[in-house]
């Protein structure tokens, strides 16, 4: 499912004394099945941008096409759009409200008009997909869970709607390293298994570099970079300007290149970088 954004502008509280333009002339295309990282400093407009993609907020001007559906068209049913585009908000655990975990996850599917039975099947499946396989906990209150578990339940609530595009807004914010790792690997697995289009918002370059095949960088309401990770990381200065830091491995690679070592541009993940270093030390083959 493709997404096309043309000259999007969004101004909050237009005309008032607190007017603020959060998106300034952004155009981009996302192809079917891509895994895209959207990155930028706090307040750069990431959340505002993604809320447009399922019609939660309306552009001040510009156009958005989701799978051929024109979101600006009054005749487009927002329900159809929200069925296709699943949006997991930042700190999604704050939206839990039902008595039991299972019921909470069923909320989305039921809003789509599915029967109780079908909704429950989907909920159980989604809960297994986020790594909550222990069925005995499904009848517990979601408020009894730990932070990381709550977040997984909330993500399952969106997965159960079976969107063909999944958007996650800072899914690892506020988690400890282990919780982070779990969430990232479940996102990766989900993308591989379900072949959905995936957009992950983050301000961690490291997370994005590990998973995404393309990176969008936002700075002060504008889209300033759009390319593969190595294209983006080659431009470390611009990233610094945008208030972001290179992932440690990319930074090390750059410093090694500066010191005259032959490190290829695509060596920005720990594994590739290790190989590249070993190779340039002349020990590559035997240890590979």
């Amino acid at each position: 499912m493709s997404i096309e954004i043309r000259n999007l502008i969004h101004t909050y509280m237009a005309g008032g004394p607190f007017e603020r333009t959060a998106i300034e002339d952004v155009s981009l295309t996302i192809e079917d099945g891509e895994f895209v990282g959207l990155i930028g400093h706090t307040g750069s407009g990431k959340s505002t941008l993604i809320m447009h993609l399922n019609g939660l907020i309306k552009p001040t001007s510009g156009s958005i096409l989701v799978d051929g559906l024109d979101l600006m068209d009054k005749k487009t049913s927002l329900k159809d759009v929200r069925k296709k585009v699943g949006l997991v908000f930042q700190y999604p655990e704050y939206q839990l409200f039902e008595e039991t975990i299972l019921k909470d996850v069923m909320f989305g599917p039921k809003n789509l008009g599915l029967s109780d039975q079908e909704a429950e099947e989907r909920a159980r499946h989604a809960l297994r997909q986020v790594g909550l396989a222990d069925e005995s906990m499904y009848e517990k209150s979601p408020f009894e869970l730990s932070g990381g578990q709550k977040r997984r339940v909330a993500i399952a609530g969106v997965l159960a709607m079976k969107p063909t595009t999944l958007i996650l807004d800072e899914p690892t914010a506020g988690l400890d390293p282990r919780g982070r790792e779990e969430i990232l690997s479940l996102i990766k697995r989900y993308h591989e298994e379900e072949k959905v289009t995936l957009i992950m918002v983050s301000h961690s370059m490291t997370d994005v570099s590990r998973l995404c095949s393309r990176i969008l960088v936002m700075d002060h309401s504008r889209l300033v970079m759009n390319g593969t990770p190595d294209e983006v990381f080659m431009n470390g200065d611009r990233l610094m300007q945008a208030g972001l830091a290179l992932p440690p491995c990319a930074e090390l690679a750059e410093r090694l290149r500066g010191a005259g070592f032959d490190i290829p541009a695509d060596a920005y993940r720990p594994g590739e970088l290790k190989q590249a270093i070993l190779r340039s030390l002349g020990r590559g083959k035997s240890h590979a």
């Binding site: 939660l56 929200r82 908000f89 939206q95 989305g108 709607m161």
Partner: peptide, 13 residues
């Protein structure tokens, strides 16, 4: 506003 949007994204009306 945030919670409302989050629930609307889950199909709430």
């Amino acid at each position: 506003d945030k919670i409302m949007k989050a629930q609307m994204a889950r199909g709430a009306d």
